[in-house]
Design a protein around this nucleic acid. Structure first.
Length: 825
RNA sequence: GCGAAAGUGGCGGAACUGGUAGACGCGCAGGUUUCAGGAACCUGUGGGUAACACCGUGAGGGUUCGAGUCCCUCCUUUCGCACCA
């Protein structure tokens, strides 16, 4: 029968004491502090934390506590990503003003994090909806505008009908809005952009400097940036004053280009249509493709539609006249929005050519000879040597062929080498209320004018009908919209677009060092000491959103000489989701509010205590993978904590003057083996195996206690080590017993126990005996015993001897202290 | 289609550079306690056998004294990319 403890009282007591003792407070102005750990900061749109999210914070807190015990002074701050659509949409539904709603949620989540025993330096707390924070978004925007990195243009952009706003490319997944799941439409709108494409190469190259990021995330970013080397080639088109530029990664196949194809959105399409007798037909075709949603246009098996214009282009290599088509499969945003069609060597071009009867000309010949265009059923790979390609003939496929082609193009003035990227500029304007106002003013005579620094912040007005069904709610605020032009003083209109919330979160990690600084955005000197962030913890869902934007803005600030670093996050850990059976679908799904399969930590804390919730959350599985939540498992975790409590109580009742125990005792060996295991497991965040080791340790101490084999002093030492090792996982119970054992000061500020390999090894080892590779017995013998000693024992062992007797040993494999394998015949 | 990761008891999952597969927990079975239910505690628990033998890490092959771990082929699942010129 174990003695049970009442977690509620103990936990409340220590939460209060840690808070009063400002255990997590760090003076960021002091010299010498340089460790900085960070959870990805949460959206307070949901009013409740559930254990699915909770894992993130519990893991972060366990790491923080371990670092503290290991003697590293760490800053563990918390900020609230308080602007944005989730908060605004929820506010619309509830009818409560977004500000009020968000602040209430922040307060509630703070309570929950506190109840879980999470230690944050609340003196560094920040919220993005606070003007003291978002004014620096505006300040940054103005600096970027000055540098040409923020600009306004009319472009085809993603429009989410559900969220009633435009979205960045990164927020469109498979043609659908990342948030609402609505099919995204393409609209031509005038919007604000950040010129992230200027940084494409640096963002790509920087990935090589991040050895502690997972290949998975880096691959996702590489794919997203999408670098491709090739050439721009200029085609003269009759009727156009400017030549038409296409981008190709295979300029070596230029002699095989038998047509040009333009995206329907390409500006030349309208000009070609104007000159054509079939103007209406061409315009109608282009329009119909444009109206199709991106989802339909890119869907698998989406048919390649095309229409021939009357225009003719000249292939600069062959001098031949080739047709110019408008084609649905040519995407406006990639390359130049125009391609040269090489049907012999490109599958898409091949399908298009076959469908519309365009000619096919192979320009690569293999050892088997060249393909007969009429007999081809698919595009040929680029292999063999170039043929039908004038002076390029005979060049083997490969980088050399491309070099030859680019050199020729550049010499003749027909083109130039070019590196293309898939990455588009970051569309940051949102036609929504709950965000940072973009600091720009529209003046009838001066154009678009920046708000002067002295007028910052441009405050987000509060008296706005945020439930307005149509358009941007800010447009309804006359006091906000009507203003004066800073240049000419005339009547002017304020910009009503607000910023994407990813602007807020792309620099907050700097702001934790000077959260209340009204003079400057970042504190360059402190950043130099504290950054990069040593350990970042966040979900994989931010792989190309937040983590790309943050890397971009960090570089922008570096170029402004405000920070010294190129990469903000040195180590990145992507934790997996918690899953749970969804009663309505019968499937195991990731835990989320919208699916209705959440578990509230509040109720669990009520029933079992925060330590149990923490322990089970860490024990449920490897943190980098998905883990399934189980109700029974929580009870098991609770039982373990009860056993620890019971053990502590029993050890405390022992007399205190029981002596030290001997250094070769098995308990001391177990202690040091456990220190080693837990230390290593914690270093790679594998708290689930650390817990397993601690469970074995607990049982081992109980066994020593019950057999009476150890002096009480040794039992106390072992038990205190258990408390130290368990503290990051179950801080309250361990802190309580640390005090009851008469220790001074907080356990979280005590040392992490030191591992002594000499004390972890036993004088005896178990040697496994194999016959022909199969385990036939075990021998107990002294560490370092020789093969001869082991053989002597084998011959004396009644259970092993029968396997050897009467057989010939043809070979022996001896691994000292581990294994003896006899090969017999 | 391309790329990556992963497949281990009834379940979640352990196993460092090849060296006792299944740690730890859940569940289950038996027991103690209890008026009973539950809870708690103790013991057992891969399959198989009276006990051995034997069979067991998705399937099939290979390397090795020895393979969950290394190599080849295939299957399945998850994730990412996908008309990117």
């Amino acid at each position: 029968m174990t003695e049970k403890y009442a977690p509620g009282e103990i936990e409340a007591k220590w939460q209060r004491r840690w808070s009063e003792g400002r255990v997590a407070y760090v003076d960021t102005a002091a010299i010498g502090n340089e460790f900085y750990m960070l959870n990805m900061y949460p959206y307070p749109s949901g009013s409740r934390l559930h254990v699915g999210h909770g894992r993130n914070y519990i893991l972060g807190d366990a790491l923080y506590r371990r670092e503290r015990m290991a003697g590293r002074k760490a800053l563990n701050p918390m900020g609230w990503d308080a602007f944005g659509l989730p908060a605004e949409n929820a506010a619309i539904q509830s009818g409560i003003h977004p500000r009020e709603y968000t602040l209430a949620n922040i307060a509630r989540m703070k309570e929950q994090l506190f109840a879980l025993g999470c230690l944050y330096d609340w003196s560094k707390e920040l919220a993005s909806c606070d003007p003291a924070y978002y004014r620096w978004n505006q300040w940054l925007f103005l600096r970027m505008w000055e540098r040409g990195l923020a600009y306004r243009k009319t472009a085809p952009v993603n429009w989410c009908p559900g969220c009633r706003t435009v979205l960045a490319n990164e927020q469109v997944i498979d043609g659908r809005c990342e948030r609402s799941g609505d099919a995204v439409a393409i609209r031509d709108l005038t919007q604000w952009f950040f010129r992230v494409t200027d940084y494409a190469q640096r963002l790509l190259a920087g990935l090589e400097e991040l050895p502690h990021w997972s290949e998975r995330v880096k691959t996702m970013q590489r794919n997203w940036i999408g670098r491709s080397e090739g050439a721009e080639i200029f085609f003269r088109v009759d009727g156009l004053t400017e030549p038409l530029t296409v981008f190709s990664t295979r300029p070596d196949t230029l002699y095989g280009a038998t047509f040009l194809a333009l995206a329907p959105e390409h500006p030349a399409v309208a000009r070609l249509a104007e000159r054509s007798a079939r103007r209406a037909e061409i315009e109608a075709f282009a329009e119909s493709v444009r109206l199709e949603s991106r989802l339909e246009r890119e869907s698998e098996g989406g048919e390649k539609l095309g229409l021939e214009t009357d225009a003719r282009a000249v292939n600069p290599a062959t001098g031949e006249t080739i047709p110019v088509w408008v084609a649905s499969f040519v995407l406006p945003e990639y390359g130049t929005g125009a391609i040269m069609g090489v049907p012999a060597h490109d599958q898409r071009d091949f399908e298009f050519a076959r469908k519309y009867g365009l000619s096919i000309r192979p320009v690569y010949r293999t050892a088997e000879g060249e393909a007969d265009p009429a007999a081809m059923t698919e595009a040929r790979p680029h292999d063999g040597v170039l043929c039908h390609s004038g002076s390029w003939d005979g060049t083997p496929n490969g980088p050399e062929a491309i070099r030859v082609a680019v050199k020729w193009l550049e010499e003749k003035g027909f083109g130039k080498g070019k590196i293309g990227y898939r990455l588009r500029d970051w569309l940051i304007s949102r036609q929504r209320y709950w965000g940072t106002p973009i600091p720009a003013i529209h003046c009838g005579s001066c154009g678009v004018v920046p708000v002067p620094d002295s007028d910052l912040p441009v405050l987000l007005p509060e008296d706005v009908d945020f439930r307005g069904a149509e358009g941007n709610p800010l447009e309804g605020s006359a006091a906000f919209v009507h203003t004066r032009c800073p240049k000419c003083g005339g009547d002017a209109r304020r910009e009503t677009d607000t910023m994407d919330t990813f602007v807020d979160s792309s620099w907050y990690y700097f702001r934790f060092l000077n959260p209340h600084d009204a003079e400057k955005m970042v504190d360059t000197a402190r950043v130099a000491r504290w950054l990069p962030v040593d350990q970042y913890i966040g979900g994989i869902e931010h792989a190309i959103l937040h983590l790309l934007y943050a890397r971009f803005i960090c570089r922008v600030l570096r170029d402004m000489r405000l920070v010294h670093l190129e990469e903000p996050f040195e180590r990145l850990f992507n934790q997996g989701m918690i899953t749970r059976l969804n009663p309505s679908t019968g499937k195991i799904e990731k835990m989320s509010k919208s699916r209705g399969n959440t578990v509230s930590p509040d109720e669990l804390i009520e029933r079992f205590g925060a330590d149990t919730v923490r322990l089970y959350t860490l024990f449920v599985g490897p943190p980098e993978k998905e883990s399934e939540w189980s109700e029974e498992g929580v009870a098991g975790a609770h039982r373990f904590l009860n056993r620890v409590h019971d053990l502590c109580a029993r050890v405390q009742r022992l007399s205190e003057d029981g002596g030290e125990g001997t250094s070769d005792s098995s308990l001391r060996r177990l202690t040091h083996r456990t220190i080693e295991r837990v230390t290593e497991d914690a270093a790679r965040f594998h708290f689930h195996t650390a817990v397993a080791a601690l469970m074995e340790f607990q049982r081992g101490i109980v066994e020593s206690l019950e057999t009476g084999a150890e002096a009480s002093g040794a039992l106390r030492e072992a038990t205190k080590t258990l408390l130290q090792l368990l503290h990051p996982i179950a801080p309250h119970l361990t802190e309580e017993w640390w005090e009851r054992f008469g220790e001074q000061g907080f356990l979280v500020e005590a040392q992490w126990p030191a591992f002594d390999p000499a004390l972890a090894t036993s004088p005896d080892v178990t040697l496994v005996v194999q016959i022909n590779g199969r385990v036939r017995g075990k021998l107990s013998l002294a560490r370092g015993a020789s093969e001869g000693e082991a053989m002597a024992l084998v011959r004396a062992d009644d259970r092993i001897r029968p396997w050897v007797d009467g057989k010939q040993i043809t070979r022996t494999v001896f691994v000292p202290d581990r294994l003896l394998n006899l090969v017999v015949r």
